[in-house]
Amino acid sequence: MRYTSKILPFVLLVFFSCVKDVDFDQTNGFVLSPVYRSAFTYFTATPAKFFDPSGTVQQNSISDVGRIDFFQNPTVAETLIQMDFLVEARNQFNRDFTITIEFQDDNGNPIYTLIPIIISANELNYTHTEVIDLRNNPQVFNTTQIVITAEVQDTGTPLNPSDTSEFEFESAIVFYIEKRF
């Protein structure tokens, strides 16, 4: 018994140890909200691109299609809340360009179309950003392909297919994720 008084506090300390002033339920309010930047499409067009394979018939509009399975992912549909579409362009042509970007479904039906981007003749430092709020445009998640159409202004004067002027288009998307736990 002589040492009981010395040992007892130690024993009590251990058996009455506790975890306090904490709330483990607050994880329910946790929101993960990363922002990712990704390169998207780019191309360089010379006047020759606007002629048919024979090189004799000018076509003022050219289109290309990029299939994209990204939006079909359920996790993407659940967590992606906004996309910023960034565009930079350099236009050495002496006529305007209009770029149309259209989100389409499997059957080629338009789902969402960005505001047409007009790059003036000889504009070498064009930048543009369009914000897509996906909470207000959930149909975007049905997208399976994106079509980018480049239309050169019809001035009445034919393009010279051997002209070396270039139209450079660059783009990126900023993805805003919000995952609630």
Binding site: A39, T41, F43, K49, G66, R67, I68
Partner: peptide
């Protein structure tokens, strides 16, 4: 290295860029 999708605008040789 990923620079993005380089659209070719070549109707005679369409490309499945994603693949």
């Amino acid at each position: 290295t990923f620079e993005g999708v380089n659209f070719q605008y070549d109707p005679t040789n369409p490309t499945n860029y994603w693949e």
